[in-house]
Amino acid sequence: MILLQATQITKRFAHRMVLNGVDLDVQAGEVVAIFGPNGAGKTTLIKILSTLVKPTSGAFQIAGIDAIANPLRVRSSLGVVAHEPFAYLEWSPYENLKFFGRLYGVDALEERIADLLADVELTPFAHEPVRIFSRGMTQRFMIAKALIHDPTLLLFDEPFSGLDVAAKQFVLKLIQQERARGKGLILTTHDTELGYHAASRFLFLLDGQIEPVAEKAEIELTELSRQYEQRLKK
């Protein structure tokens, strides 16, 4: 089942073409890793796919719905983890999850919040303000917030950046869990090793264009890293 299908997405800021004809699709139960250096357009692509920014041209559907024409209709299918928390840091994780859960119209919200906080190991900090959290704790909170409404498609922008080894392993585990539950997931990263372990398919985003690389079964980590470094040198 195709969760997302993007065709010829372009984005121009002033005279700079950040994305230049991006084609992308994601199936249910698939994790797609997009590798690219800083400034490659990864964040812009995630913002467009999350419907927060409109593309200059192109089209994309989420669960078969035209996401550019109907952004409000598709947003409840999306769970987004971005660079910013997209939350109120004066509030605790519990308060944030309750507020956003209500806006999404989540049923049995209290149970859902308790389960999610347990999943991301934040139960002891459920009522502490998020602003005092470490980077790793904030990232776990952001993942819980992205999952509160049980979305079918997850968009993770650099989910490993700034995390220590344990926190990276934690995020990897969560990604695998969500994949096993049939979710589709796009993650952007410049770390080939983590991306390799997290994803089932790999793409490069270079000079605003997507370059398909391989399915996980078709490529070893060393070969993926070698190809990526080679493409960066070009």
Binding site: S50, L72, R75, A82, E84, P85, E90, F100, L103
Partner: peptide, 18 residues
Amino acid sequence: DLERANGAIQGVRLTGVD
């Protein structure tokens, strides 16, 4: 300012609120 800080307003937009 509270909405802009940490992208909170984007979080609200993502919920599909009109």
